[in-house]
Write a protein that binds this DNA or RNA. Structure first.
Length: 275
DNA sequence: ATCCAGGGAGCCT
DNA sequence: AGGCTCCATGGA
């Protein structure tokens, strides 16, 4: 079905570093694996996207997933007409980005894997985990075969040596411990959606292998706390090169995570990163 | 070949 | 609170 929505750009979303299983098929066309489902999307024109799903699934799942009921335009307008020159350019450049509502457990594991890796390496590790611990599935609409993201149970039972064989490095025990915490109910990810961002970060950081940055990414991309503000090497670069390390997130109270995504996406572009 | 990546734990001031 | 060092590995 065809979706018309402003500030909805597949390329920008796929390259924004928040999702690791959305990749190009051809020019303007992407596939996405999320919630055990496979989806194809094509950017027909600016603000017009064709999605390979029924209207029912769109309303039930994907509208929510892409945060399409939220007005990004007013935030972009505010930044573009504001006094912060870096944000002015950043918002202009990434105005089609949306913060996805992704599966919390998938984000938990994905961002544990992400530490000290570049995005292509993260993607490759995640695909390997899915191939070994996920379910092989065939999409009825397109006939494409894909692997779902593993359940907490499956990863909780994984052996350290087996994960190490997938080249996850020292993150193997972090993954197993985090999966056990979720499987055993010590960490209730659904409950963390309902509580505050600060409380969620505090709880996530109690898991070994999760520090401030990863916790903020999980909070932003998995729990949809859009006030989260993850600071990675790219954001450190922005904050020191453009703000003398004095950026005030309080100016963007309640939606700092969206501002963060514009900054992250733009600074990588400025430095010529192409993945 | 060398550097670096959507970092964090452990240890030291 | 802030600064080291080490960690395992692949992409650029």
């Amino acid at each position: 079905m065809i979706i018309e929505n402003k500030n909805f750009d597949l390329k920008q979303i796929a390259e924004s570093g928040q999702c690791f299983r959305m990749n190009p098929i051809s020019q303007n066309k992407y596939y996405l694996i999320a919630f055990d489902r496979y989806l194809e999307l094509e950017q027909l024109e600016e603000d017009v996207v064709e999605i390979s799903c029924s209207e029912e699934d769109y309303n039930k799942i994907w509208k929510n997933y892409f945060h399409l009921d939220f007005d990004y335009g007013s935030i972009v307008d505010k930044l573009v007409s504001g006094t912060d020159n870096f944000l002015k350019e950043a918002a202009k450049y990434g105005k089609g980005i949306r913060i996805l509502r992704q599966d919390p457990f998938e984000m938990l594991i994905s961002f544990i894997i992400s530490q000290n890796k570049n995005i292509p390496a993260i993607k490759s590790c995640i695909e390997k985990i899915c191939e070994v611990y996920g379910n092989k599935t065939e999409d009825k609409t397109t006939g494409k075969v894909y692997y779902t993201f593993p359940t907490p149970n499956k990863l909780a039972e994984a052996k350290k040596e087996d994960l190490r064989a997938l080249k996850l490095g020292y993150r193997d025990e972090y993954i197993i411990e985090a999966s056990r915490a979720v499987y055993l109910g010590k960490i209730d990810l659904e409950a963390l959606k309902a509580c505050s961002h600060e409380e969620a970060v505090k709880t996530l950081k109690s898991i070994k292998g999760i520090g401030d940055k990863v916790a903020n990414c999980i909070s932003l991309f998995g729990l949809h706390h859009i006030e989260a503000f993850p600071i990675d090497v790219w954001m450190k670069r922005v904050l020191s090169e453009y703000y003398d390390n004095k950026f005030d997130t309080a100016l963007y109270q309640g939606y700092a995570g969206i501002v963060q995504q514009y900054m992250f996406y733009y600074i990588r572009h400025v430095h010529g990163v192409n993945n």
